[in-house]
């Protein structure tokens, strides 16, 4: 999702995060911390809500309109959940977290930046392309640099 968002604007203030070792049977999983991130884009707005931290303590609360959307389109409360402009919704991860387990955050980031081809980067890039396509349908194909790929 972060890779897709970067096609439409600038994400800043993010941090490095990880899921705890043993969560869902996986080793430690690198992930993004978007809790304090901000996103600037002439095309879209982005809102991120973290339900709990990695110690399973409650974190963010939902605005009433967000609650209404969740209650309507995600009644079984599957997580992670992605919702794009009332047009698309995705429950669960688009690829197996097992592809990233045990890897250091910096290693995965460097592999993505350098264009290294392996199972993990392929899965992340495929998912980013899919989310980009969904967003492009919401922006009317703007910007072309992202939507003509």
């Amino acid at each position: 999702m972060v890779t897709a968002l970067q096609n439409f604007g600038t994400l800043s203030g993010w941090g490095k995060e990880h899921h705890n070792d043993g969560y869902q049977g996986f080793k430690e999983l690198p992930t993004w911390d978007l809790h304090n991130a901000s996103y600037n884009s002439p095309y879209i707005q982005f809102s991120d809500k973290e339900v709990q931290d990695h110690d399973f303590q409650p974190l963010d609360k939902f605005a009433p309109d967000e609650q209404a959307i969740l209650d309507k389109y995600n009644p079984q409360a599957k997580w992670p959940w992605l919702y794009i402009n009332g047009q698309y919704a995705q429950a669960g991860s688009g690829y197996s977290p097992g592809l990233l387990q045990g890897q250091a955050w910096d290693d995965v980031y460097k592999q993505l930046a350098s264009g290294t081809q392996n199972e993990a980067t392929k899965a992340i890039n495929d998912e980013a392309k899919l989310i980009t396509q969904y967003i492009c349908r919401s922006t009317g194909g703007q910007p072309e640099s992202a939507c003509k790929q």
Partner: peptide
């Protein structure tokens, strides 16, 4: 419990911790 997951790239997986199993 949502332990059985399907991923397009890797297929079906049983994602559960040891205590959950």
């Amino acid at each position: 419990g949502g332990f059985l997951q399907f991923y397009p790239q890797t297929g079906w997986e049983f994602d559960a911790s040891l205590s959950e199993r």
